[in-house]
């Protein structure tokens, strides 16, 4: 959760303004930003370096803003449903709707982006947004384990299997 907590409140707005005024490379802004997060242990340092402003693009900003808006709507609806119990929707049905939407968003997002392990920025931001909206990000992520699109760190899993593969094959 460190990434967006460390962002000044108007950082996204500032980044967008700077991007509007500057040329940026023809590359996935999100990937570049995620890569930066991997190479800078502290997002504030990355911000200060000036690189984030140069390479963080509208894709990321718009995605995060879209997520925030949608999650706020979902959270508001969930709260209303739970408190007033005026609708026939069960809470878990509402959760399911929200999760489906999240899953769809993340799927689209991942398809256009780099591997899961390089999405520290997006994941952390997403986790924070879900938490803000009253959702259970860890629980949702756990449910998505079997979704190949959101399988966490596939290379890491493959590497673990690869190590075991050598050991078991040699022991046989």
């Amino acid at each position: 959760m460190r990434v967006f907590k460390s962002l000044p409140p108007d950082a996204l707005h500032n980044i967008r303004q700077q991007l509007d005024a500057a040329e940026r490379p023809q590359a996935s802004a999100l990937e570049a930003a995620a890569q930066l997060i991997n190479t800078h242990s502290d997002y504030q340092e990355a911000l200060k370096s000036g690189l984030v402003q140069r390479v963080t693009g509208g894709d990321l900003v718009e995605f995060i803003e879209r997520m925030r808006n949608r999650l706020q709507v979902d959270a508001s609806r969930r709260t209303t449903d739970k408190q007033a119990k005026k609708t026939q929707l069960r809470a878990d049905q509402v959760e399911e709707t929200s999760d489906e939407w999240l899953s769809e968003q993340l799927t689209d997002f991942m398809r256009g982006s780099a591997a899961w392990k390089n999405h520290g920025l997006a994941l952390v931001g997403l986790g924070e947004l879900v938490a803000e909206a009253g959702g259970n990000f860890e629980g949702w992520l756990l449910q998505q384990r079997n979704n190949p699109v959101v399988a966490r760190d596939t290379h890491g899993r493959a590497a673990t299997f690869a190590n075991r593969l050598h050991l078991e094959a040699e022991a046989a």
């Binding site: 590359a27 996935s28 570049a32 991942m110 591997a115 390089n118 190949p148």
Partner: peptide, 19 residues
């Protein structure tokens, strides 16, 4: 899905090198 991800990663590495 993984093909696209790997391709993006590789392209990203190149861009980061330039940056």
């Amino acid at each position: 899905i993984y093909f696209e991800q790997c391709r993006s990663l590789r392209a990203n590495e190149a861009v980061m090198g330039f940056l």
